[in-house]
Design a protein around this nucleic acid. Sequence first.
DNA 1: GATAAAGGATACCACAATAGTATCATTTAT
DNA 2: ATAAATGATACTATTGTGGTATCCTTTATC
Lengths: 132, 132
Amino acid sequence: MKLITRDTDYALRALCFIAKKNGKIVAVPELVRELKIPRPFLRKILQSLHKHGVLSAYKGAGGGFKLAKPAKRIFLFDLLAIYQQDWHLNECLFKKMLCPNVRKCALKKKIDKIERFVKKELSLISIASLIG
Amino acid sequence: MKLITRDTDYALRALCFIAKKNGKIVAVPELVRELKIPRPFLRKILQSLHKHGVLSAYKGAGGGFKLAKPAKRIFLFDLLAIYQQDWHLNECLFKKMLCPNVRKCALKKKIDKIERFVKKELSLISIASLIG
DNA sequence: GATAAAGGATACCACAATAGTATCATTTAT
DNA sequence: ATAAATGATACTATTGTGGTATCCTTTATC
């Protein structure tokens, strides 16, 4: 079981790298060289970060990406939301109602508590706090 | 992302059902009838619960399974350990050391904190507490 | 002792999610 | 005009999850 998938991990690394550049535009070739992430995969990831308003994109020669907002306002939670859409820990148990209600409800409450904690913690981890 | 996979979920249901029987031996046909879990899959699951000392097995006609220890000493955490072997939330980030140390360590600490909480909570959920 | 009803062991298959590739189109600095 | 960048999108590969199938061993009961 992975809390953080490869997409999210790569996105995190790229964002940390870009954040350190202090607003300078960074292009894919440099990121590939530095981070050793497969080029086409990285491009896909950066494109989605752009679509979701995390990065600003600049086309054409000399183009690239920079952060679209301050590093302290980009959170791990946001990335999870992009790459591991609307994840919730208690998936199985809700969708199919096979289990007797008592157990379902007892378990649901406990799992929900865990989920709330995890989400809260992930909302506190910003790019800024990682490069600090 | 799923905290609980199908194996674990089915194991949980089966254990709750068996626990309610108060030490009586329960055979697969009854469990299949009551829980609507595919028979071969359920058999595989029960066998592994037996191997891991959660269930006692009785072969031959009239055989079946019963709990190998009190319901209040069987925890969701144990099942996770069986079916989602040695899971850890921060998998990606450890195995491959691509990321600069600062970020790795900063993130590791935060993820570890989350993981400790989740494990602790899962260790508190017993079969007994679910059949209340 | 034969038989049928149980579990033990193990190899296999299907599908979905994750991870990664390839290609062509569009924009823009020089 | 050209080369260097991103945009869009379709495709492929690998892996993990979920599930089957088959044959073997044990044991209660007649």
